[in-house]
Structures are given as structure tokens and as C-alpha cells.
Design a binder for these strands. Structure first.
Length: 171
DNA sequence: CGGCTTTGACCCGCGC
DNA sequence: GCGCGGGTCAAAGCCG
């Protein structure tokens, strides 16, 4: 299957920067209720307080009352990307194993569920094509990798784990 | 032969 | 209690 499209290499950067941002003291004051929305055009990231991708209008208390913010996922790090791409599966440097596919009500397009194939790593990923703009793909990461990305290993000089140790961290 | 996709079934929370 | 919507499991098959 076709993985990395031609110039879409910045996905690696996105995924890494996400991991870096979280592990190195969360410089952008993220927490579980924050969503990072990357725009592919400018690669500028903006922190969205009122969750844009998940409807929370049903509740009055905003984030806490949102249906996605149940008690069991408190402290779970989640990032949502919306990227213009014609391919659903974008290689961000990690190994993903698909474990489910569901069609959501709001969109005619199905939603795919992936999980990091590395043992002990509980990071999940959900890929969905934008219903309004079929040329856009919404990818949501959930969780933090407790291991090093193969891409980081690849780009790290051998014997030097400086870059990797930031991600692998001391969790 | 081992790991990954596929796909329907199952499960769980929530609203009526 | 029941149905629905969304998330996950797991068996079977595919592919390198």
C-alpha cells in the first residue's frame, strides 16, 4: 500500500514535535482538554480551547462536560490534526496496526482505528476523512509513546540517543 | 510463517 | 429497559 506521499514528509515532524512538546515539559501548556490543530498550509499550530472538532454544545460547563472528556480519560494526551491529503494512511514514523473500522453518523466516510504496534505502548490513533471536504483528513492521536519512534532512531547518529531520549523520556 | 488487515460481533455509556 | 452511537475484540485471511 502507498504510504508516504511525495512531499508530505512534514507528518514526521508533526508527530515528533507533538511528542517532543509533551515530553519536554509541555511548553505550550497542553493538557487533556486541549487540542492542537495543525493546519497543513502553514504548519502553524494553534491551541484551541473550545474543542473545535468535538461538539461540546450539549453541555454548559464547556470542556469538562463534553462527552469526550469522561473521567477515565483524564490526563490522556490527545492531538487532532486536519490535513489536506488524498491518502488516508500517512506514515508519521511509527508503526500502526489497524484494529477497527467504523462508520460514523455525522460523516459518510468510515473512521479507522489504529494502535501503536510496539508492545507496551498504548497510543491510539483515529483517522477520519472530513465529510465536508473530502480532500481533508482528520487524524487524532491519543496517548503518549513510551518508546522511540523508528524514524527518530533512523535519524539519530548511532550511539547517540540524545534525540531519542527526549521522546523515550523517563516515563 | 509471522505480523498485519479485514470485518462482523460484542460491549459500554447515554438518552429517551 | 431498550435502542443507538461509538470504540474494541478476535477469527480468518492476506501478504511479504
Amino acid at each position: 500500500m502507498a504510504y508516504l506521499p511525495t512531499e508530505r514528509t512534514d507528518w514526521k515532524a508533526i508527530a515528533m514535535s507533538m511528542a517532543f512538546a509533551h515530553h519536554s515539559g509541555r511548553p505550550m501548556e497542553m493538557n487533556a482538554s486541549d487540542y492542537l490543530v495543525y493546519n497543513e498550509a502553514s504548519l502553524a499550530c494553534q491551541l484551541e480551547r473550545p474543542v473545535p472538532l468535538m461538539a461540546n454544545g450539549s453541555s454548559t460547563s464547556g470542556i469538562h462536560g463534553s462527552g469526550m472528556q469522561t473521567a477515565k480519560m483524564e490526563g490522556v494526551f490527545r492531538v487532532a490534526f486536519r490535513t489536506k491529503s488524498e491518502i488516508d494512511i500517512l506514515d508519521d514514523g511509527f508503526k500502526w496496526r489497524k484494529y477497527g473500522k467504523k462508520s460514523v453518523k455525522s460523516s459518510p466516510n468510515p473512521r479507522n482505528y489504529y494502535r501503536c504496534s510496539t508492545e507496551g505502548c498504548a497510543v491510539k490513533k483515529r483517522v477520519e476523512r472530513d465529510g465536508g471536504d473530502p480532500s481533508y483528513v482528520i487524524t487524532t492521536y491519543e496517548g503518549v509513546h513510551n518508546h522511540t519512534s523508528p524514524a527518530v532512531l533512523y535519524f539519530t547518529p548511532k550511539g547517540n540517543a540524545s534525540g531519542a531520549s527526549l521522546i523515550a523520556g523517563d516515563y
